[in-house]
């Protein structure tokens, strides 16, 4: 699969500083869902995550003239992460969390994927599967069919479905190992 088409963030930042609302909309829609999922990993509350990301974008617009931004990505990522961590009330959990991400990857603290990057990564991985295996995998993980339902629909045994998914999984766990979320779920911090 060949893909092309990148966005020049410098151009976007310049347009933004010239009050271009359309560009603001574009940036918003490009990063919004990825950032919400990113915040959701930290605070485990989708609605609140949406509020956080929206307020970060409002701040971006209000401060646009004075911002010295290298990339929108690291600015947005850092802002969302910091606001999310602030929301964690339990100080002990917050400390452990901060320590955890420092240990994991001090250089890319603001790592998150947006929809396009993630879907591309997953598409490329799925593309590597043999056709039959891919079909079964898509039915299971994207159409949310139960193993038994897939077996019935394709007139094969449940074991065959599981074997095919296990093939898929062997490939996917190599292909998706670079998915760079750094956030540990809070439950893990609580119970470890």
């Amino acid at each position: 699969m060949h893909s092309s088409g990148l966005i020049d963030e410098k151009f976007l930042v310049i347009q933004l500083q010239q009050d271009d609302r359309k560009v603001f909309e574009l940036i918003f829609k490009f990063y919004y869902s990825g950032l919400v999922v990113y915040a959701d990993r930290i605070i485990r509350d989708t609605e609140m995550s949406e509020d956080i990301v929206q307020s970060v974008f409002m701040k971006l617009w209000e401060d646009r003239k004075s911002l010295r931004i290298d990339t929108l990505r690291s600015y947005l990522g850092a802002a969302v992460k910091n606001r999310s961590i602030d929301l964690i009330r339990n100080q002990q959990v917050q400390d452990r969390y901060l320590e955890y991400i420092r240990e994991r990857n001090p250089e890319h603290e603001e790592g998150f994927c947006n929809f396009r990057e993630l879907s591309e990564m997953i598409n490329q991985a799925i593309d590597k599967l043999p056709p039959r295996c891919r079909e079964i995998f898509l039915m299971s993980r994207f159409r949310h069919l139960k193993t038994a339902d897939i077996a019935r629909e394709l007139k094969i045994s449940g074991r065959t479905v599981e074997t095919q998914i296990s093939h898929a999984l062997k490939i996917l766990r190599i292909e998706l190992k670079d998915y760079f979320y750094l956030i540990v779920t809070l439950s893990k911090l609580f119970f470890e």
């Binding site: 879907s119 997953i122 766990r173």
Partner: peptide, 15 residues
């Protein structure tokens, strides 16, 4: 991780 990548994608879709 592979599973979470996929559920994250689905979550993003729903937003």
């Amino acid at each position: 991780k592979a599973g979470e990548a996929i559920s994250d994608l689905e979550k993003m879709k729903a937003i």
